[in-house]
Computed example of a mutant assay.
Amino acid sequence: MHIGILTLRISLPGCTSLKEKRQRMGGLHARFGRNPAVSVCESGDQERLESSEWSFVVVGAVRSKVESLCSEIEDKMQRTVDGRIMETSREFL
């Protein structure tokens, strides 16, 4: 069993309310949580308006599959989120 933890810190320039932040970051649970190998949560900056931190825990029997899924998540986040990814970290257990 291999576990990958992908953490993304996202800048949300011009965000003026928590409601706007939720709208801009909305749907992450629906987009990524459908996959039974992925768990997603807002792991930091919950009260900050202009940034958000999200963590994805990916589990699989083969490390290469876990790494590939982490890359897919990161690519999709860059294309779909209304913000800029400022920091990315990956950890494999």
Rank of each mutant, 00 (worst) to 15 (best):
T88C: 11
L28W: 07
L49F: 08
S68K: 10
E87T: 10
R9M: 06
G26S: 03
T80I: 14
S89H: 13
Q46S: 14
S68M: 09
C41T: 15
K76Q: 13
K76W: 12
S17H: 05
G14I: 02
G27F: 12
L28P: 05
S89L: 09
E50H: 08
Q46T: 13
E47P: 03
G26P: 03
D75T: 10
C41K: 07
G4K: 00
L93I: 12
M25T: 05
E72D: 14
V57Q: 03
S68Y: 03
R48C: 12
S51N: 13
S71I: 01
C15N: 07
R31F: 00
A30N: 11
F92G: 00
A37C: 14
M1S: 11
A61R: 14
Q23C: 01
I10N: 02
S51F: 04
D82F: 09
H2I: 00
L69K: 06
V58C: 06
T80C: 10
L12Y: 00
L6H: 10
V81G: 05
V58I: 15
V40H: 06
I85N: 06
W54P: 03
T7P: 01
E74W: 01
H2Y: 11
F32L: 04
D82M: 11
G33E: 05
V58P: 00
L12C: 02
G27E: 10
G26A: 05
R9W: 03
G27K: 07
W54R: 06
P36N: 07
R90F: 04
E72R: 10
R63S: 08
R84T: 12
M86K: 12
T16E: 14
G44C: 04
E53Y: 03
I3K: 10
F56H: 02
M1F: 08
